[in-house]
Write a protein that binds this DNA or RNA. Structure first.
Lengths: 138, 138
DNA sequence: CTTAAGTTAGGCTCATGACTAAAGAAGTAA
DNA sequence: TTACTTCTTTAGTCATGAGCCTAACTTAAG
């Protein structure tokens, strides 16, 4: 039940990408890694998963880099979680034993509540905007 | 982010204990293990943690066994989770990188929401009462 | 064609979860 | 006291995954 570093890193790097979204710029892995204090070698894998999930886009070669695939408003927290950690509250409870079914039902309710809460948050909420920068784009 | 078997087992065994609560009976490990389809050797550890958390009481020797320490109404889901899995949504996020603080804040909010939801459920909700049995005690 | 990027695959180490096993302690009854 | 029953405690195994690293490969710009 603990949140993984991977998830934390994903949130941070997406927040970072969100800051410059709309400027047509692409961010490099090294830049992102140092800005958010994430091991670059690990970040590679995370960015891969985020791309496979359709949250970010990438371009190779010189002038390559990463950018958000959509506006930060359009990316929910639950999408981020599912992109890097698979199912949210994995309710893999067996329907075994005398109370198995009932227990599974209750946890299912809890999971749904959790999911709907996550769906309320968007990447927008994570973005730290510097006081001076990019006000034109807001 | 997945729920552990240990947590599932804990819910089930507590539900089972809840069924006979108030009758002054003590349940044996073997009985509980077979009723809820839990490996007995593993259940031993779980019952230990539940006892250390003050959710159940135990008695050794002949006529020994386990029972709830309180009424099922008085045991919240969050207590169960904390007893076997430590902190609920472990928010061990570092305040590192450009967006670290903001990300940690948001997840803190999510965690609090989750906790309050858990506090709404009680062991009562988990108990499966057979149609014929123990109606006098309800 | 050279260089700067991203892409992919693999491997390593450590921590944890799930479970098994067994010796030890405490209560009960003969 | 002795034996038996039941919980108690601790140790150990095995598989899995997180986190991180290395290296070879592919694409694109100039």
């Amino acid at each position: 039940m603990k949140l993984s570093h991977k998830l934390e890193y994903a949130c941070r790097v997406l927040a970072q990408l969100g800051r410059t979204h709309g400027q047509g710029k692409l961010a490099h892995i090294e830049t992102l890694a140092s800005a958010e204090a994430i091991p670059a070698n690990y970040l590679v894998q995370i960015l891969n998963e985020l791309r496979n999930a359709g949250l970010i886009v990438s371009k190779r070669g010189k002038q390559g880099g990463y950018a958000l695939a959509r506006e930060p408003k359009r990316i929910t927290l639950i999408e981020i979680v599912e992109a890097v950690d698979g199912e949210l509250l994995e309710r893999n409870f067996e329907d075994a034993g005398h109370s198995g079914q009932r227990v599974a039902e209750i946890w299912s309710e809890v999971g749904e509540c959790f999911e709907s809460k996550m769906a309320e948050y968007h990447l927008d909420d994570f973005i730290v905007r510097d006081a001076d920068a990019e006000m034109y784009y807001i």
